[in-house]
Nucleic acid binder design. Sequence first.
DNA 1: GCTAAAACTGAATGATAATTCATTATATTA
DNA 2: TAATATAATGAATTATCATTCAGTTTTAGC
Lengths: 175, 175
Amino acid sequence: MALKGYRVKDLQREVKREKILDAATVEIAHSGYHRTTVSAVARRAGIGDGTIYLYFENKEAVLVSIFERAMQRIIGEARPIVEDSELGAPDKLRRLIELHLSLVGMDRDMAVVVQVELRHSLHFLELFSRSRVREYLGLIAEVVDQGRNEGSFRKDADPLFTAKALFGLVDEMAT
Amino acid sequence: MALKGYRVKDLQREVKREKILDAATVEIAHSGYHRTTVSAVARRAGIGDGTIYLYFENKEAVLVSIFERAMQRIIGEARPIVEDSELGAPDKLRRLIELHLSLVGMDRDMAVVVQVELRHSLHFLELFSRSRVREYLGLIAEVVDQGRNEGSFRKDADPLFTAKALFGLVDEMAT
DNA sequence: GCTAAAACTGAATGATAATTCATTATATTA
DNA sequence: TAATATAATGAATTATCATTCAGTTTTAGC
């Protein structure tokens, strides 16, 4: 019964967890975190209210998990690009922007939730600045740094600040 | 007792209304709309909870009025610039950006509330896209259009889209 | 098919906060 | 100044939801 180390039960659990996250993403994108009720998420996911609590600690944990999943996805695809030793910095940056835009375009609701709700609360902002978002920006900063060393980018800008400004802009344009 | 068509009573009423809006702006900028209680606004304004309801229909109406006031202010100052027949389009645009930035810089709390809360809910966004925001963007679009006719701007961009992109960017940079 | 365990449900609970309104304070008028 | 009208108050009411949990259904092993 063990396939690649997973049990069927665990896979089913994972599927339902994803379904809850998807439902919450749609609802929160549409109404915002505070206007979205747990009941509405449950209804959209086709499960009972209480079931949410078998998968998440509380309502806030659902929102946090939406962020986690979004960042996981983008970082997972961004890292190979950054670590590709064949590519120059300008090409890498181009690909990262393409990646970012394609993910934002692919799941508009996810993008809305991350952009709007992340800004909305200093609480979350702090929580995430210290982890995933910083990791992502760090990857971009790495590329900017590579570019400065290769001579293809100017030397007079802080890589992390550049990363922030650039992708703030890209996000803004996308929506 | 009648001066410029206003009665003292009405002026006093207006002053208190403004005080409530100011208090609400500070509180909402700091904690967000949903975390801000009507009691907190009343406390900051130095009045009783119930008094808010003598001036506004409900909590949401206070938020809406903050938007209205902000847009009123900026449109009031932007219109003369746009309608100035002495100025070319590039100068007008420069002045509009200056105006925008100066208002944003002057009242940071107001800017935060408008930017964050307006985005936060499609509900409000729809409410306002159909009125004041559109009016403001329309003014900017007018200038872009003038520039295209004068030949100082390129012909190949939609004025309203340009206006949106430009001021989205300005807002982003400001914060 | 039977049974125990696991998963699920949704009505009940409790907490929070918007709104109301009977009462009190302030202003206006005669 | 007293009478009346207007404005303000804040405790009580009500509405809204996140969360819980006793009871129900589903699943898995035998």
